[in-house]
């Protein structure tokens, strides 16, 4: 049976596409699915670093498309998780090195051997985005609870619709429950109300993401972290399981919150 192609995109940069791709890949692979992650951000290669595979790159996506390497040679197998493989982007070229037809052909080859092909889309609405979306069976939109990111997500949803893809689903990233409670951040309902698409996951703000990205060890490996668990739940929903959406606590340690309170006992929302 042919695998499913999932494209992770957002419009705006820096909202967590690459982190999501890496962690969803890990979470699905941990459940025994064969997963290929493709970095489609040609010229701004990142996925290799987040997955901790940067020192093993020999060939990249442009080498495959231009016939210098076979796709088997370019794929890098994750030693921690043999079900997971990655196709890196080229760092020395730009988005125009690949066109949507070439992406379709490349992904078609992978679909036979993998259960899931996850494509990390570049930011923007131009050539790179079209490359990433062309082969998609499902599109997941990543956004943060900020107006600028939500507006860009809205634009992208419109473009995904006109590309005649199934209705995309939403991952709300970097949510800070404390700020939402104080009314300082858009709540999940606010974002869904604007974008009018279904939610597939909420990732709380978690400092572990930064350390894990720097170390090349995605949080989805750590079952204890809030963000890691959230990615696990997204993987379950991708597989069609019905998993309730978690209620998150702020990850600020209790002590720090007490200290803040002692310094400024009256100004509730001053932080």
């Amino acid at each position: 049976m042919a695998g499913t192609v999932i494209t992770i995109t957002s419009g705006k940069g820096g909202v967590g596409k690459t982190t999501t791709t890496a962690n969803l890949g890990v979470a699905l692979a941990k459940r025994g699915k064969r997963v290929a992650c493709i970095d489609a951000d040609i010229g701004l290669r990142n996925l290799d670093v987040v997955l901790g595979l940067e020192n093993r790159i020999v060939y990249d996506i442009v080498d495959v498309v231009e016939g210098r390497a076979r796709i088997r040679q370019a794929l890098i197998r994750d030693k921690r998780l043999p079900e997971l493989q990655m196709l890196p982007a080229a760092q020395t070229r730009d988005k125009t090195a690949v066109n949507p037809q070439q992406m379709l052909r490349l992904v078609q080859d992978l679909k036979d051997e993998f259960d899931f092909v996850i494509i990390d889309s570049p930011a923007g609405i131009e050539h790179g985005f079209r490359n990433a979306v062309a082969p998609a069976d499902r599109v997941l939109i990543v956004t943060t609870p900020e107006m600028s990111a939500v507006r860009d997500a809205d634009r992208i949803i419109g473009m995904v619709e006109s590309a005649e893809k199934p209705k995309p689903m939403l991952i709300l990233n970097r949510l800070r429950p404390g700020m939402v409670k104080r009314g300082d951040m858009l709540a999940t309902e606010d974002v869904l109300e604007i974008l009018a698409i279904d939610l597939i996951g909420i990732i709380p703000e978690d400092e572990n993401i930064i350390t894990s990205t720097n170390r090349g060890q995605p949080v989805a490996f750590e079952a204890k972290t809030q963000a890691g668990q959230a990615y696990g739940r997204i993987a379950a929903r991708v597989l069609g399981e019905n998993v309730p959406f978690g209620v998150f606590q702020d990850s600020t340690p209790v002590l720090a919150r007490l200290q803040k309170w002692f310094r400024n006992p009256n100004g509730g929302s001053g932080a």
Partner: peptide, 24 residues
């Protein structure tokens, strides 16, 4: 339908939208 960011409608009469007109 809902008009999303970046979509533009120009019409030489009146326009009625059954849906939202989003920011952008």
């Amino acid at each position: 339908r809902t008009l999303r960011s970046g979509q533009i409608i120009k019409h030489s009469g009146s326009v009625v939208v059954y849906g939202d007109v989003n920011d952008g």
